[in-house]
């Protein structure tokens, strides 16, 4: 074999080695599933980011409780500030007051249903945390799969 042929053979082997490495790299990339999702450039609400501060969850829940308490305080004023004395006389007057109280008690119980939004807030917070953990786990697995496929080429000569 002449010198040129030897060089050509050597170069060919080097090219093969590079191509093999490229194939391994391509195969490693192919093992990465990637995450399929919508391609949002902006969030659906127009914001350029989405996210939550976990510390805010308790603050939001507190604000909902305050909101419900304010409503219930307004309802309570009905019984304390309004009296049928100028409208009714006799046993019917306290009976009417008791009826008004029953109405406001029903309203009070109904309004307390808004506290469900405080519980929803807790659930949404937990959902965010689970999504964070799940996504983290998936990305770590993908990184591990990539790393195990990485093979550096070292010069032989």
């Amino acid at each position: 074999m002449g010198l040129i042929d030897k060089v050509r053979l050597g170069l060919g082997k080097a090219v093969d080695a590079v191509n093999n490495l490229k194939d391994k790299f391509t195969a490693a990339i192919g093992k990465v599933q990637g995450f399929v999702g919508s391609c949002f450039e902006v969030a659906r609400n127009g914001s350029t980011f989405t996210g939550i501060n976990y510390d805010s969850i308790d603050k939001i829940r507190g604000s909902i409780r305050t909101y419900v308490t304010k409503i219930q305080n307004e309802l309570a004023k009905i019984n304390s500030d309004l009296s049928p004395d100028k409208a009714l006389k006799g046993d019917i007057a306290p009976a009417a007051s008791a009826y008004v109280k029953a109405v406001t008690d029903v309203a009070d119980a109904y309004v307390s249903a808004l506290l469900a939004y405080s519980d929803k807030m807790y659930e949404y917070g937990e959902a965010f945390k689970k999504n964070d953990a799940s996504l983290t786990s998936n990305v770590k697995d993908e990184a591990s799969a990539l790393a195990s496929s990485a093979e550096k080429y070292t010069e032989k000569y």
Partner: peptide
């Protein structure tokens, strides 16, 4: 007040 608390700590379609 609830809206203010939400906007202070939560951004996105879910918050809206």
């Amino acid at each position: 007040e609830v809206e203010a608390a939400v906007k202070a700590g939560w951004v996105g379609q879910s918050a809206d």
